[in-house]
Amino acid sequence: MNTQMPRRAALALYLGPVTLFYLVFLVAPYAMVLRLSVFRFSAMQLYIPQFTLANYTAVLTDPFYLALMARTIGLGVLVTVISLLLGYPLALKIARAGPRLKSLLIAITLSPLLINLLVRTYAWLVLLGDTGVVNKWLQALGLTTAPLPLGGNMFAVVVGLVHVSLPLMALSLIGVLERIDAALVDAADSLGASRARILRKIILPLSLPGIGAGSLLVFTFTISAFITPSLLGGNRVSTISTVIYEKFTFSANWPVGATLVMALLVINAAVIALHGRLFREA
């Protein structure tokens, strides 16, 4: 291959553009936002470029921000657990299905990923509102007289986020479940294990890597989700993401917003690190 360019030049040609693009539009903007977090807030000129840790002190001591972070992490855990509890039976079903049913179920499971997030959120808005479809049904069936407060609260946010997260979770689980050798289940069966014992002792332990990967995906997605909490929470549910949005738009407190960005990134990194520790072997 005598016509090949020198290696260095070729590499620069292949990797140069994307590196430059990332440096300018990813690294630089992130650096700038994070720099804001150590600047002083000013109501008049947005911020004063003077080093201060006041924003961090505020975020780490103010009960409002502490509750905000606790709520966001709690939401993440809750949505992850529910997605796991619902996603596992679905993934098992898909992994065990015959080829035709399997492709159908995979298509159904994955379809939400390809359908606009706004459409999915809107659907829940329509279903869960005070005069929404679910409340209308409940009243028509005579189960309730007054509308249940389904929408515009934490419940709606959790439902919406679980709906969005399920495909991510199921996808991670299907992969590992399908790779479990069917002979292992036969072997356990022949040794006298009941279905429950096979599930608990064989399938569950062997699918731990998938549970880990899916949980990581869902948790990080949930704590930084913005559209779903902002629409389904009806301005009554705040998470780190919705407050970041607010700080950078209406209330224009960029330094505190930037500090919350930092908090979100740290939580993310911590969870990724934790996952790496727990699943190092796998």
Binding site: D181, L184, D186, A187, D189
Partner: peptide, 15 residues
Amino acid sequence: RHRNIGIVFQSYALF
């Protein structure tokens, strides 16, 4: 599981 048959699988199927 109720037959009490021991099986050695071709792939061994060790957990």
